[in-house]
Design a binder for these strands. Sequence first.
DNA 1: TTAGATGCAAACCCTTTGCTTGATT
DNA 2: AATCAAGCAAAGGGTTTGCATCTAA
Lengths: 130, 130
Amino acid sequence: MKNTKQKALIYNAVMQNRCHPTADYIYHLLKPENPGLSLATVYRNLNTFANEGRIIKIGMPNGSDRFDGTLRPHFHMVCEQCGEVLDIDLSQLDHLAEEVYTQSGFTVSSYNLVIYGTCQSCAEVKENNS
Amino acid sequence: MKNTKQKALIYNAVMQNRCHPTADYIYHLLKPENPGLSLATVYRNLNTFANEGRIIKIGMPNGSDRFDGTLRPHFHMVCEQCGEVLDIDLSQLDHLAEEVYTQSGFTVSSYNLVIYGTCQSCAEVKENNS
DNA sequence: TTAGATGCAAACCCTTTGCTTGATT
DNA sequence: AATCAAGCAAAGGGTTTGCATCTAA
């Protein structure tokens, strides 16, 4: 693998923007300072990093995939009001793979959990407006 | 809401095909006997049924959404070998909403869990071939 | 009769791909 | 110099939408 300027830019952007950016977000973030940059390059590199395990790809049903530089196991909550994506640790899922295998004989390789709802700050706003 | 022939056809197709069909699957299933049927109608009605709570929409990251006539809370496992989608009950997730709220103040309205791996029959095939 | 659903095609969004040009080793 | 990546534009898939037509109420 070659070390290109673009790879470094894109990787650093994921690491420094802990908002779970989409490919498009990163593209628009870097584009002004790097007018030559192409969206295809952003996608290609994000997928490469994810396959190498350097970042995590969060598959969002009905929406753009998001990327995450936090490698520790955790899950994601999407606020339906403000659209923000938040992290959460759920220890009750630590043994999901074992439970699934015991119960059904299915060997788990990975899983994707996305939680939808209302984040605390949006709930407070609603509270104050009612 | 009007009771059309198409609505009945599509709803019955979901209920009678417990393979977690996609919109396209249902379309191709019904099309031969109903040459006038349109894919847009299938999508529109499936989404309507899901919004009404008559069926469940399973958002599949990087793939077509699937629909499920089983309303009892349960989750889905996708076999990466044969592509089949299987049901599983996971009681450890019964109190996920409470745990999330306690831990983070996030109010859960719904969540989407998809488990990837190898189903029992595909694992047995691999075993026999090795 | 008329509100609402269908069919069709076009539009849409997100992502990937083919191919030429350009940069890294 | 050879190889691999980037840039561009086009294609791909899955889904939704605008609009005219049709149909259940």
